[in-house]
Computed example of a mutant assay.
Amino acid sequence: MERRTFLRGAVIGSSAAAFGGTLMRGAAYAAPAQPGTGPYGALGAADANGIQLPAGFTSRVIARSGQNVGSTTYKWHSAPDGGACFADGAGWIYVSNSEISPGGGASAVRFSSAGAILGAYRILGDTRSNCAGGKTPWNTWLSCEEVTRGYVYETDPYGVNAAVQRPAMGQFKHEAAAADPVRKAIYLTEDETDGCFYRFLPTTWGNLSAGTLQVLKAGTATSGSFTWANVPDRDGSPTTTRSQVSGAKKFNGGEGCHYANDTVWFTTKGDNRVWQLNVAANTYELAYDDSLVPGGAAPLTGVDNVTGSSYGDLYIAEDGGNMEICVITPDDVVAPFLRITGQSSSEITGPAFSPAGNRLYFSSQRGTSGSSSAGITYEVTGPFRV
């Protein structure tokens, strides 16, 4: 059976965007993704927004830092970072973090069923360097502080309930989170050069106020098996969480994290890798490594935020590099999907699909000026594979 066919039949709800994986083929490991022709063809010339896209795709600017969002009176935050989409009746909501300190947090934009901007508002404030995060199956947004002994905050994308700090999920340099409804776990990355990969097991699924924090243990190889061990002191003082468990596997700068169908993908910026964990079999391998691309022609560098589509494609945003969002297909082909021009001092953040899968949201964190006060949030619409 084709991996894509298997995965499309196994999608768990609209929030569990599927992406295949070489581990799905069986016990034998396959080579990490290699460059090839992307599913949408070559990039065209830059459009009026400075974005190069394949034929059939168009872009628009949704918000700019310090300016009113659409016709609303809400001013968009600086340094837009990690994001996610949530269904809202016939429309949807896009949530975006603010990676500034102090005064970080997160904001939301509400869209109609036709994509018109209906409103914008703050859902979290007065926090520090909110980088990435993750969506929960109960439709909350986990906003993560990328600071030493940082917290995870659980927020309400709909703007009704106040945000809640979740210290049970540990205090460390949080980056991203991904929810696994099968094992009732939240996976967490850590942005340190010797960071770890964690999972949080809530005492009650759907309630993050209490539970067990664990760290992944494995050898130093790039593939093999792993186990989990409890973190004794989740507040990370006086000993950091990453230094408490002997044999905890170290990862060089954990970034984006995505779960679908018994598989977790996460990126490490220090070595430009995409890791792939089969959490049912407790095995891991590399889904991508730029150093394994022959001839130094790696299309994906500066790996950062990651999301998946219902078709089975993985979309990875670059922090630097060529300012691209690259796609890794279920056939292990990696290729550019879009490129932002004229913004070489920025990074791409917060990729997320609308519930129907035909609109992709993301930001250029520092825009054309390279300043956090010049962030731009975009939407790309077109014939995405769904």
Score class of each variant (00 low, 15 high):
Asn272Met: 03
Leu213Asn: 02
Thr203Glu: 07
Thr220Pro: 05
Ser223Asn: 15
Ala287His: 07
Tyr187Leu: 14
Thr203Trp: 00
Arg273Ile: 13
Gly219Met: 10
Ser225Asp: 06
Ser237Leu: 09
Gln276Tyr: 01
Pro238Arg: 04
Phe266Val: 11
Lys269Pro: 00
Ala248Tyr: 00
Asp271Ser: 11
Ala287Ser: 14
Asp262Ala: 14
Tyr259Met: 09
Phe266Asp: 04
Pro238Trp: 03
Gln244Asn: 07
Pro232Glu: 01
Asn278Leu: 07
Gln214Ser: 06
Asn261Asp: 12
Thr227Ile: 08
Arg199Thr: 04
Glu190Trp: 08
Arg234Lys: 13
Ser246Gln: 08
Leu216Met: 15
Thr222Leu: 13
Pro238Cys: 10
Tyr288Ala: 07
Asp262Thr: 14
Ala260Glu: 00
Ala248Gln: 06
Leu286Trp: 01
Trp275Glu: 07
Ser209Asp: 10
Tyr284Cys: 10
Lys250Gly: 09
Leu201Glu: 03
Asp290Ala: 15
Val279Ser: 04
Cys196Tyr: 02
Ser223Phe: 14
Gly224Trp: 10
Val231Phe: 00
Val215Ile: 15
Ala210Leu: 08
Gly247Asp: 11
Ala185Asn: 02
Pro202Ile: 07
Gly236Tyr: 01
His258Val: 08
Pro232Lys: 04
Tyr288Gln: 05
Tyr288Leu: 09
Gly211Arg: 04
Trp228Ile: 15
Asn252Gly: 03
Arg242Asp: 10
Gly195Arg: 07
Asn230Ser: 11
Phe200Ser: 03
Cys257Ala: 15
Asp191Arg: 07
Ala218Met: 13
Ala287Arg: 13
Cys257Gln: 04
Lys250Glu: 11
Asp233Pro: 03
Ser223Asp: 12
Ser209Trp: 00
Ser237Met: 04
Tyr259Val: 12
Ser246Asn: 09
Ile186Arg: 00
Val264Met: 06
Lys269Ser: 10
Gly206Pro: 02
Val245Ser: 06
Ala287Gly: 15
Thr239Met: 08
Trp228Ala: 12
Glu285Ser: 15
Ala221Ser: 15
